[in-house]
Design a protein around this nucleic acid. Sequence first.
RNA 1: GGAGUCGGCUAGACAGUCGCUGCUGGAAGGCAGAGGAAAGUCCGGGCUCCGCAGGGCAAGGUGCCAGGUAACGCCUGGGAGGCGCGAGCCUACGGAAAGUGCCACAGAAAAUAUACCGCCCACGUCGGUAAGUGGGUAAGGGUGAAAUGGUGCGGUAAGAGCGCACCGCACCGGUGGCAACAUCGGUGGCAGGGCAAACCCCACCUGGAGCAAGACCGCAUAGGGGGACUAUGGCGUGGCCCGCGCUGUCCCCGGGUAGGUUGCUAGAGGCGCUCGGUGACGGGCGUCCCAGAUGAAUGACUGUCCACGACAGAACCCGGCUUACCGGCCGACUCCCACC
Length: 122
Amino acid sequence: MAARGPEGFPRRVRLTDPKRYQEVFKSGKRVRHASVGIIAAPNGLTYARLGLAVSRKVSRRAVMRNTIKRRIREFFRHQQGRLPALDFVVIAYPDAATAASGEFAATLLRLLQKISPLCASS
RNA sequence: GGAGUCGGCUAGACAGUCGCUGCUGGAAGGCAGAGGAAAGUCCGGGCUCCGCAGGGCAAGGUGCCAGGUAACGCCUGGGAGGCGCGAGCCUACGGAAAGUGCCACAGAAAAUAUACCGCCCACGUCGGUAAGUGGGUAAGGGUGAAAUGGUGCGGUAAGAGCGCACCGCACCGGUGGCAACAUCGGUGGCAGGGCAAACCCCACCUGGAGCAAGACCGCAUAGGGGGACUAUGGCGUGGCCCGCGCUGUCCCCGGGUAGGUUGCUAGAGGCGCUCGGUGACGGGCGUCCCAGAUGAAUGACUGUCCACGACAGAACCCGGCUUACCGGCCGACUCCCACC
């Protein structure tokens, strides 16, 4: 496997196991906003990982749900070098379907800044 | 030029930076990467397992005829009926003289038959009429979505297929057509209300479950303890019964469980030429390889241009149907107006 750049998004930085999702949901710290929420828990690794939860409640259209996921992944890809070693599960809410791209990224950034110290202290 | 009908195609383009999935490569890198509906999951098939998919009942579907197809509820061609000046479009379009059932309101009567207002005749009180009684009628009025063939002439007390002509209907026969059906001739005075997307009858079709199918690896159902009930039982088996195959069964204690690989994309495949066919489609030759993810990839940002971008995201694969949709382009044809 080739060495990837600092802004890559390989499989190892994604949550791929349903069990791990359950663990994060049970023990993680939570913050939320009208369009999006984040649950985070320490993962014991040296890097951050990302999981997504975008249900049909957010938007009935699959195209819209895919777009939301892509925006979140894109944001994570750029920010991951600055993040602590946590597993993040990002949950989208119906407002995410109507939010503008720039606004949505700003909201995510604020939430990440709020949640990181919470986990570091625990 | 205007109005319209039918059929087909297309679904922003280009460049840069940072990324994702697959294949390939030692590596650098290279190549490929959502749709016409991928959708709804409404039909049909392939594929997989259920031992073969056997018999009967039940249930469901289809419904003018012929053809196409792997198959269809799809498509093509034809027939019939309806709409449109026309190009064209629409139609659950088998059977109601097998049976059962239903037909609101109105109306005398909604199918056994019948008579509200009428019309006509006779009778008796009586000069006559009205009214009454008995009978003949169904032409007219009235009700209704629908009332026992229609129009005309004759006929009659008044009327009536009572008689006649034409139309309609039924039956028989001829001709054309594979057929649906069309058409011609004869016979019958005419039987029959509508609804079969009411039950039903007739013809044809359908075994069940689905890729979380299924296969392999790993783990494991193991093994153990206690109790109960019996082969007319239990399981395969799915609406039921028969048949067939396998086999003791159930409960409690204790223990364990949804990880990986595969199925997974080369196919009833696309494109071109050609031959057969009115056509759907089929045959032949050449050529191309065109997503295979699995918390689930095809995007984000920037710039330029234009007509400023709709509906919308593959999950085993095909053939259809239906629904959603900003626009743009092409072809064939019809009607109207004007000009040469």
